[in-house]
Design a protein around this nucleic acid. Structure first.
Length: 260
DNA sequence: ATGGTTGGAGCCCAA
């Protein structure tokens, strides 16, 4: 089973680009982030025409996540538990049911947190605490679990082109990296790092200042696997070529293959 | 190089 995560930076502005990638990559399941539309205006028919089912958690203007799957999506839950006053659409999970077995998959769009001296940074850290708490409850069930998404956290200095330039950024500050380490310390596996030792492999390049051309990237899109899923992990690949196409997202897809 | 670009809204915000 091929499971991907892709921050598309507006599904409507990116539709042709995203559909072209779906056709060539033929993923079983895709976690989308930053769809930037309300649930009812998601271009569901375009994905259904390719044989996919859609579970969508959107909002006006910002954020928005979705699960797109060739297989049936069951037990869909929208929104991250732990704060009923939080109206930002950043989390959806569901169980992908197949004849060979089931996988619970979440699409995660963690807060950016910049500028760090504003209320955005504590919101990021508290949101990660809620994700950690929710992940603990999921792990109790010992399912095949894939937490895919834009975590907006650079794990280590090997995952950024210039660690010094990013030292004060919310994506690389110590407290942020500690939150991701706490996720991993629950027993999750970073699928990309489990399969690829080579440093400086990125999933995001800014639109500004020729970042793509200079390979000034960061690795912030991750597939985190429960022990049961990690035992089935065959490979994990970043589709970097997508960033060089017409009207690209500033993120590229990353996918893993699990043997079911 | 304290710059630069993109998308969605609506005469700036978030990334």
């Amino acid at each position: 089973m091929k499971i991907a995560t892709f921050n598309v930076n507006s599904v409507k502005a990116r539709l042709d680009n995203v559909l072209a990638w779906f056709k060539e990559a033929a993923p079983d399941v895709v976690c989308l982030q930053e769809i930037k539309c309300e649930t009812q205006s998601f271009p569901r028919e375009a994905f259904e025409a390719l044989g996919y089912n859609c579970a969508i958690h959107g909002q006006k203007t910002y954020n928005g996540v979705a699960l797109i799957s060739k297989h049936k999506i069951e037990d869909i839950r929208e929104g991250l538990p732990g704060d009923k006053s939080d109206e930002q659409a950043r989390y959806i999970e569901g169980v992908i049911a197949t004849k060979k077995g089931a996988v619970r998959v979440a699409s995660i769009y963690a807060p950016n947190g910049n500028p760090p001296e504003t209320e955005k940074y504590p919101y990021k850290l508290k949101w990660m605490d809620r994700l950690i708490a929710h992940t603990k409850t999921l792990l109790v069930d010992e399912e095949l679990l894939v937490l895919g998404g834009d975590y907006n956290i650079i794990p280590t200095a090997d995952d950024v082109y210039d660690p010094k330039a990013w030292a004060g950024d919310a994506l690389f500050k110590l407290e942020s990296r500690q939150k991701l380490r706490r996720m991993l310390n629950l027993g999750l596996t970073d699928a990309f790092r489990a399969c690829n030792a080579k440093p400086h492999q990125y999933t995001f390049w800014d639109y500004q200042a020729g970042a793509w051309q200079k390979d000034h990237g960061i690795r912030i899109d991750h597939l985190l696997l429960s022990p049961q899923a990690a035992d089935r992990l065959k490979t994990c690949v970043i589709d970097q070529k997508v960033r060089g196409r017409e009207k690209p997202s500033d993120h590229v897809p990353i996918w893993c293959e699990l043997k079911l």
